[in-house]
Design a protein around this nucleic acid. Sequence first.
DNA 1: ACACGTGTTATGCG
DNA 2: TCGCATAACACGTG
Length: 266
Amino acid sequence: MPELPEVESARTVIERAGLGRKIVDVDDTDTYVCRPHLPGQIRDALLGRALVAAHRRGKSMWCDTSDDGPELGIHLGMSGKIVIADPDGTEIDGGDYWEGRRGLGDYRWGRFSLTFADGGRLMLVDPRRLGRVRLDPPIASLGPDAATMTPAEFRAALASGTAPVKARLLDQEAIAGIGNLLADQILWSARINPGRRVDRLTADDVDRLLRATRRAVRSAIRDGGVHTLGIIPFRSPGGRCPRDGAPMVKSTVGGRTSWWCSREQA
DNA sequence: ACACGTGTTATGCG
DNA sequence: TCGCATAACACGTG
């Protein structure tokens, strides 16, 4: 589910099928997903306008709206996805998880939607409601996007402090877009223990982490999401490292369940 | 019934 | 105030 690759996929869905369509209705009645707005605030701001561009930084998306309208921010949280359903029966589902489909454009876990003049709808489908929709979202505090950051930006993100390297990789203000699964893949690929403090990393460690990050992010975007990452099948009880066969071990690092090779990432 | 979880954020501590 | 750790958030799944 949503880490940077899934969000990029969702952004593409909006870009391909959600732009330039006049908005004639907005369901913003889920007060948790649309916080801190009150019901009707997002609706009032968007009625009559259209989305005209879809952007992404890390796991955050935002859309420009016509006539100098506000930006519409969408965050998929832990379980959100974007679906666009059209009257002709076309339905573009931006994720293959949490189906909940009851009919065309009808989802058990629909939390927010835009209805277009032609009857089509763009929906946020999100069982756990940790996703978020808001006007003019704050994105300034996010670090550089993990898919496009420069080597200098990556080095800077790891250059200070004492946090475990995995916690730093997950820190969206340091680098934007890496989630728990990408982090495990990156650390396994670079052969670095998730609990290693950033101030104990060598220059070579950082170089390997940079290359591993670029590789993991790009392959996950290309192959359809973080579920396709190589380490995923081995993040389970009894799992063994696909490189050397040593047991994969599980613990909590940076507040998240982490798996790593007991030998290569000792 | 109960623990877990691919994300974010408020709170607390040194 | 800063850097970091932890709990809380909501709710479906195993």
